[in-house]
Every structure is written in structure tokens, then in C-alpha cells.
């Protein structure tokens, strides 16, 4: 019970502090203060959630100074005659600039509305009193009045729910659907769809490419796809392909450890017969020094083989029939 009384007493004291008697301090002589307020253009039709901005500029001449503690406090809810007005100070931005014998304060006050009514109703932001002090006479604090702002709150809808067909005022004009944005949406949609389809085709096509997907054989293919069918060039081409395989499995690839390659990238399994042929060709060129093979055919075959390796590297399934179609066995 005592605890409950204590809480009541606390709120009573707080209420007394929140309400300040305007007659407590004398008004400042107007010659020391210049005031300019930019009020919002809209003064009616406010409803719950709306925000009102007040730009207040005060120039205070010396010897007076603004007691900054007398400015409104964020979160304080406006009252009139002890009644809540449904308006709260949401934010305050404060800027101070000294010029010769005066100080200019630019204050932005943002009030948020927390009330509405079934009919339009006047409401106002009550006057505020900012206190000024003369440092030479600290006991004689004076006040300066910021005038109130009268606005009108409105219901969210007129008399509650509205039936549009009963509210066809000729002065308001018919409600029309904005067709431009819908047409743009359709255009963007079609554009996106086409791009998606093309991307899908690209991904599943044999020439697909993604960043970081190409590793070793892309370079080999790019470097040698226009190579000449001379002995040195073919030797280099074969060496580059060997290097590509070695890099792929991070060890040397020989005919008897192909399984390591297949384990690393199963796509190569589909061109196993081509890999066997490649090793035969490599053996003939590098270790048997056979010179009686057709260089033009071998070079063309190597270009297609390197393309197939590139496709395998990208995880694609290669149709080895390509090579047969081109007349290679």
C-alpha cells in the first residue's frame, strides 16, 4: 500500500515539474530578441503518424544568452490544461552561431501526431517559453515566448469506412489506374525473362563461361586454336595440354593414372577415348619421334580436343561424336 502511494506521489511531483507557470519569469525586453518561424505549409488534414516541422530562428543579443536546458525535450508530449494533446516532440535539431553582439539559434522541431478524430478538429502545438539569462545578473532569468501553432486534425476516412460508389463527387474526378507504370512493369518483366532464357541457354550451351570457371584448358585453347600445323607448334601444343592435365590434378597425369583425373572431374570420363588418343599422339611425338603422321589432321584434332577439355573443365558433358563428324577416327 505504501509502495503504491509512493508511486502516486512520484507521478504527482513529475506532473508539477512538467507544467511550468508562465508567470514565474518576466518577459525579456523584445529589443534583445528577434524571432523567425517557418511553419509547415499544410495546416489541416493531419492524422495519426504525420510529422510537423517547425523551423525556428532566434537571434539573442548580448548580454542575454539562451538557457539551452529550457528547450523542449524529445519525447515530451504536449498538454493543454493538463490534458494530453496527442502530439509528441519526436526530434530536435539545434544549431548555434555567434555574430558580433548576438547569437543566432536555428532550431528544427519535429512533432509527431498521435491523435485523430471522426471529424476534422482543431488542434495546436502549445506555446513554449525559452528562458534567457544575463550572466551579469544570474538571478534575474527572463523568458521568451514561442507562439503556438494551430492546425487541424482529420479522420483517416470520412465517417469511417467509405463506399467509393456512394462518394462520387464530381469535384474530385474519377479514380483512374495509372497505366504507365503497369506497362513499364510488363516491359521490364519481358526483358528480364528474355535475359533469363538467354542466360540459361548460355549456361547449358557448350560455350558457357562463368568467372573463375575457366582454369587451364581455356588458356591452352585460346593460345593454340589458330596454331600452325608445324612440328614445333604441335609439340608445344601437346606439352601445354599435358601441363593443363597436370595442373588439373595437381600431379603428373599418365595413361595409367587417369582415374585420378576422373575422380577430380567426372566430365573427363566422357572423353576417355580421346584422352587415350591424346596420349598415343603425345607418345609418338615426344618419345618415339614418329614423323610419318599427318600434321594438319593432328593439329586440327588437338584444337578440338583442347576445346573438349575446356568444356570438361567447365563441368559440361562432351559429345565425342564431334570429332568423328569431322572425319577423325
Amino acid at each position: 500500500m505504501h509502495k503504491f502511494c509512493g508511486i502516486l506521489l512520484f507521478f504527482y511531483v513529475m506532473g508539477l515539474n512538467a507544467y511550468e507557470d508562465p508567470n514565474k519569469f518576466k518577459d525579456v525586453d523584445p529589443k534583445f530578441v528577434e524571432l523567425a518561424i517557418i511553419e509547415p505549409k499544410q495546416l489541416v488534414g493531419y492524422t495519426v503518424g504525420d510529422i510537423i516541422d517547425r523551423h525556428i530562428t532566434i537571434s539573442i543579443k548580448k548580454p542575454y544568452q539562451l538557457i539551452e536546458e529550457s528547450l523542449p525535450i524529445v519525447g515530451y508530449e504536449k498538454r493543454y490544461q493538463g490534458q494530453l494533446l496527442g502530439m509528441t516532440l519526436k526530434d530536435i535539431q539545434f544549431n548555434k552561431k555567434s555574430i558580433k553582439d548576438s547569437v543566432t539559434y536555428k532550431i528544427l522541431l519535429k512533432y509527431q501526431i498521435f491523435t485523430n478524430n471522426v471529424v476534422a478538429k482543431p488542434a495546436f502545438i502549445t506555446a513554449d517559453y525559452y528562458r534567457l539569462i544575463n550572466p551579469a545578473e544570474p538571478d534575474k532569468i527572463v523568458k521568451f515566448r514561442i507562439p503556438e501553432l494551430t492546425i487541424a486534425t482529420s479522420p483517416i476516412a470520412i465517417f469511417g469506412a467509405v463506399k467509393v460508389e456512394d462518394d462520387m463527387s464530381p469535384f474530385r474526378g474519377p479514380l483512374t489506374i495509372e497505366t504507365i507504370s503497369s506497362k513499364m512493369k510488363v516491359k521490364y518483366g519481358i526483358f528480364g525473362f528474355v535475359i533469363s532464357i538467354l542466360t540459361l541457354f548460355y549456361i547449358y550451351s557448350r560455350y558457357s563461361w562463368f568467372p573463375k570457371q575457366s582454369r587451364f584448358f581455356s588458356h591452352v585453347y585460346r593460345q593454340y586454336k589458330k596454331s600452325n600445323a608445324n612440328e614445333k607448334e604441335i609439340e608445344n601444343f601437346v606439352a601445354a595440354l599435358h601441363h593443363g592435365f597436370n595442373q588439373t590434378i595437381n600431379q603428373a597425369l599418365f595413361i595409367n593414372n587417369k582415374e585420378v583425373l576422373f575422380k577430380k572431374n567426372n566430365s573427363f570420363k566422357y572423353i576417355e577415348s580421346e584422352i587415350n588418343d591424346f596420349f598415343k599422339l603425345s607418345k609418338a611425338i615426344n618419345f618415339e619421334k614418329k614423323t610419318n603422321f599427318n600434321r594438319v589432321d593432328s593439329c586440327a584434332w588437338l584444337i578440338i580436343f583442347s576445346l573438349h577439355c575446356r568444356m570438361c573443365e567447365r563441368g559440361l558433358i562432351v559429345d565425342s561424336g564431334d570429332i568423328k563428324k569431322l572425319g577423325f577416327k
Binding site: 601437346v238 606439352a239 599435358h242 601441363h243 597436370n246 600431379q251 603428373a252 599418365f254 593414372n257 603425345s282 615426344n286
Partner: peptide
């Protein structure tokens, strides 16, 4: 050694 040394 056989794994790491490449040929050719």
C-alpha cells in the same frame, strides 16, 4: 616423385 615430376 613419379606423381610430381611431369613428362614431357
Amino acid at each position: 616423385i613419379i606423381k610430381k615430376v611431369s613428362a614431357p
